[in-house]
Nucleic acid binder design. Structure first.
Lengths: 340, 340
DNA sequence: ATTAGCACTCTGTCTAGATGAGTGCTAATC
DNA sequence: GATTAGCACTCATCTAGACAGAGTGCTAAT
């Protein structure tokens, strides 16, 4: 499709632009990336690349910058992903590990670390399992008319929910109910509620409201919730020259504020494993059409649990961030296996 | 200290500047606020006010703006707080109430509402009680080496913590331990751990690690934690003309990102009840010396539980926000009494 | 004590010109 | 035929100067 020289030029423009944030001219390329040809030749090739839609010109007398298509070709074909050596990986691992064994804190730390390492905005979603296997249910009395239900699913994920009671129940009664239900559901897949199970449940659980609340807690198919979205380092993007325009910065920050939006965009990723790069207009969401998003799923026992990734300008250091995100997803998975 | 006319002029400058964000000149005041005197007279009075440190001039040929001191005088003496009529209060109340009975969601909603109502950045801290009265303890088995401890204190505040076990404990054993401890501590003040209690605890709880974890969970004096800080509407401040300067906007957003900082500033407020206004340099923290902070404590049974408030530029609509914050604190308290 | 008048100061905006980077085209060169 | 040197042209950015407008402070008159 392109000859070797054109590829090298496209690569040079992309790398240089990613680094300098300035449109790249033919002379710069001739000087910095020794292709052995003169600026004039490069100009001709650039013209071709622009015709083909891989480069574009902010205005007539400026250099070229990659289009979304150009970045895509760079990421898919030209890019040489940065390799993290063992020492670096080890450093990240220890940065993750030293935090407490409280899952929420651990995840926050991970996102913070990823953000400060890449200097982009980092996000994490999850963890949630698609196949939810029942492990245990606890019921703790709060007062006469409230109890806290604690649901434990494989792999040791914990969900809480306050439940309203119609009639007071003692600690003992609550414990008995919890034990009965736990025994009944032990090891079962919570994605399907068979009628027999349902009937038994209805039979064992005394109050209608309690029964309904438990069914809702346990059997509702649920994606990640708002409080399972972690965002760190939104301000990093303000250091990027593309966000010196205050209105763009505002739009981006606004978009980031609503976690619902992120869930919409990234929520589905949880199922499709692996690294994913979205470049500029490839994002359907208007707010992020000048951004690129690099995400990867972290897994437990081969089961995807959630997504971790970064948001940056389309002029993103793909070579570095793709490996960084991969490494984080990988380490996060390992870490979770340890914790659980 | 000031004569009546000077006060009215200071008031006029403050109100006008809060509204227009432009330095206010003598002519403007003479025209808009009919004091019955000419601009020249007003100029003389303004000179006095500037001498006294209540007004300042951005540059020689500009109008005047209030200094921090001027704002302070305005807030303490001159301001006529906006009155919310019953309909408005009712609207806010319903805005708060319709959300779920999940405390965390309810609080988030409240902060969001306050932020969108005032168009400033809103924050909430808490709830935590200073006098922590034990109500109940639950222990839910996660796996052989982990359990979730659930602590309920007056007024029905719930805290979770994952605990590591040395030896596996069955559901039944955990339930027994929880029941014993609950009985032992029923109604006790968790701020003091007497030696007898401690000994009994040590005696009843089988594993050392479990005992220590429980003591840490229950008896550690704790202020609000990171996850008890809610911030909404940080981007609202970007609409304020004082934050068109990108570097200022950045500094502010950075400061907001670390919830620790907010805890430092506002953490203590939880104890001293009532409305509190901090203006500009009255804030010790550098990052907020160009901001004003309006906070109030929300209470339960006369006990302060936490703080709610807003951050804005020193050119803040104090008349409106002070009442808004008061009303929210008040309603939040009432709401919590209902929920608990 | 108040005010009209006026000189003065400072900011923001507008214009024009200079500068410089970079292109696209043409003609010469390998 | 591919490559390159040369050159005219375009466009954005920077600078300096001019100018209008807003507001003050002072003085002298009321």
């Amino acid at each position: 499709m392109f000859n070797e020289r054109q590829k090298r030029i496209l690569q040079a423009v992309t790398i240089d632009y990613i680094y300098t944030a300035e449109p790249v001219g033919s002379r710069t390329i001739a000087r910095k990336y020794n292709l052995g040809v003169s600026p004039a030749t490069i100009r001709n090739e650039m013209y071709e690349l622009e015709e083909a839609g891989y480069l574009q010109q902010p205005h007539t007398s400026a250099g070229r910058i990659p289009s979304d298509l150009g970045y895509r070709f760079y990421v898919d074909v030209l890019m040489e992903p940065e390799v993290f050596d063992d020492a670096q990986v080890e450093e990240i691992r220890s940065g993750l590990a030293l935090s407490s064994h409280d899952l929420a804190i651990l995840l926050h730390q991970a996102v913070k670390l990823l953000s400060s390492l890449t200097r982009y905005t980092a996000v994490l979603i999850g963890p949630v399992t698609s196949k939810r296997i029942f492990k245990n249910l606890g019921l703790v009395r709060i007062d006469d008319f409230h109890a806290l239900a604690v649901l434990v699913t494989e792999p040791n994920l914990v969900e809480n929910s306050t439940i309203e009671l119609e009639q007071p129940l003692s600690d003992g009664e609550l414990a008995t109910i919890a034990a009965t239900v736990s025994e009944l559901l032990q090891g079962r897949d919570l994605n399907q509620l068979t009628t027999t199970i349902n009937q038994q449940l209805r039979h064992f659980v005394p109050q209608k409201a309690l029964y309904e609340a438990l069914v809702r807690l346990m059997f509702t198919e649920r994606g990640p919730k708002n409080d399972q979205v972690i965002i760190e380092g939104t301000t990093h993007l303000l250091d990027q020259p593309e966000f010196t325009d205050l209105s763009k910065a505002k739009a981006f920050l606004r978009a980031m504020e609503g976690k619902e939006l992120l869930l919409n965009i990234l929520g589905d990723d949880t199922t499709t494993s692996g690294l994913k790069v979205r470049i500029g207009k490839e994002n359907q969401v208007d707010e992020f059409q000048e951004c690129s998003i690099v995400t990867a799923t972290y897994e437990y026992n081969g089961q995807p649990l959630g997504t971790i990734g970064i948001f940056g300008p389309t002029r993103l250091d793909y070579a570095k961030t793709t490996t960084a995100v991969s490494v984080f997803a990988q380490l996060l998975g390992e870490l979770l296996e340890e914790v659980f």
